[in-house]
């Protein structure tokens, strides 16, 4: 095994892991606050990939030729519209079921996921779509034969992901809104007694999770260039794995779990076999669930009252 392959896989793994981490945030925050897995979250991410392509196409057809502006506008638009999806999903699929048994919102989540997949398939078509490679810039280290290649998009992915996570970490840890989120997560009834509109906080958490998934969707679309209505499924399950790995309910856990999953998946692909990388990722999930069900940073489940 050559050093450059190893280094290349570390770069790829870091990129992939940042994406998993961003999407995992949505799973972990929603689970933390209402104790359910939002199975439609991967599809929210998928929607943001389509939004990226649509926004870029609209901007370029309007004659915008500043790439940084187009990217920024696309990011903002994708985040806003995806956040609106997150808000709406909570409103129509989960809120009416609050207080019912645990199974009902789970079924509703799977239903919502199918609605999004089929809705996008109907409106956008089933074939794979793509955006042209907009940022070809690449850094190379090494000589002609053995080199490590880092694209500018990969650098953007890592930088933007880490910055978003840091911002979110600050928001949850230091602001009034963040304190209200944590209070609602720890004891929803008590939070309400203290004057917190807990329904509003739950909506906010869906909005934040969706906006983070939108950042991931924009970055991935810029990186790979192609997507279809089904990408939310596999990526969603991977990000969910990352959330469980890090300890579901824990924000730093989602980031850590994403990075570990991304890195180990990339190293496995580079050193062992690419075809089995998904099998590897899910084996990791099974192992974590057997040996450390609360994940790396998770706390043992406390039954909610």
């Amino acid at each position: 095994m050559d050093w450059h392959i190893l280094a290349q896989q570390l770069v790829n793994g870091l990129t992939l892991g940042s994406i998993y981490g961003l999407i995992a945030i949505g799973y972990t925050m929603v689970y933390g606050i209402i104790g359910m897995i939002n199975f439609a979250h991967g599809d929210v991410y998928m929607v943001s990939a389509y939004l990226t392509a649509i926004c870029l196409a609209v901007l370029f057809s309007c004659g915008i030729d500043s790439l940084p502006f187009a990217l920024l506008a696309t990011l903002v638009a994708a985040m806003l519209i995806t956040a609106a999806y997150g808000w709406t999903i909570e409103r129509i699929a989960y809120r009416p079921l609050r207080g019912s048994n645990r199974l009902a919102p789970l079924i509703s989540a799977i239903g919502m996921s199918l609605v999004l997949q089929n809705g996008v398939q109907l409106s956008q078509g089933a074939r794979t779509q793509g955006v042209p490679s907009l940022i070809p810039a690449t850094l190379r280290f090494g000589d002609e034969e053995t080199f490590v290649q880092i694209t500018l998009v990969q650098v953007m992915i890592v930088v933007v992901s880490l910055a978003s996570m840091a911002l979110l970490h600050w928001l949850i840890g230091r602001t009034t809104l963040g304190r209200q989120c944590r209070a609602t997560q720890q004891d929803r009834r008590m939070a309400a007694i203290l004057g917190i509109d807990t329904d509003r906080i739950i909506s906010t958490v869906f909005v934040i999770g969706a906006a983070m998934a939108a950042i991931a969707g924009v970055l991935v679309t810029l990186n790979y260039g192609s997507f279809d209505f089904y990408i939310g499924f596999v990526t969603g399950i991977k990000a969910f794995t990352a959330a469980v790995l890090g300890g579901i309910g824990s924000l730093p856990g989602a980031m850590l779990g994403g990075l570990i999953l991304g890195l180990s998946e990339a190293l496995f692909s580079g050193m062992v076999n690419t075809d089995y990388k998904d099998v590897f990722a899910f084996s990791l999930l099974v192992l974590v669930l057997i040996f450390r069900p609360t994940g790396l940073l998770g706390k043992p489940e406390v039954e909610k009252v």
Binding site: A192, I193, L194, G195, I196, D197, T198
Partner: peptide
């Protein structure tokens, strides 16, 4: 609603 009652001055 519960949170509105807190705003009336009951704790």
């Amino acid at each position: 609603p519960t949170h509105a009652i807190a705003k009336l001055g009951i704790a």
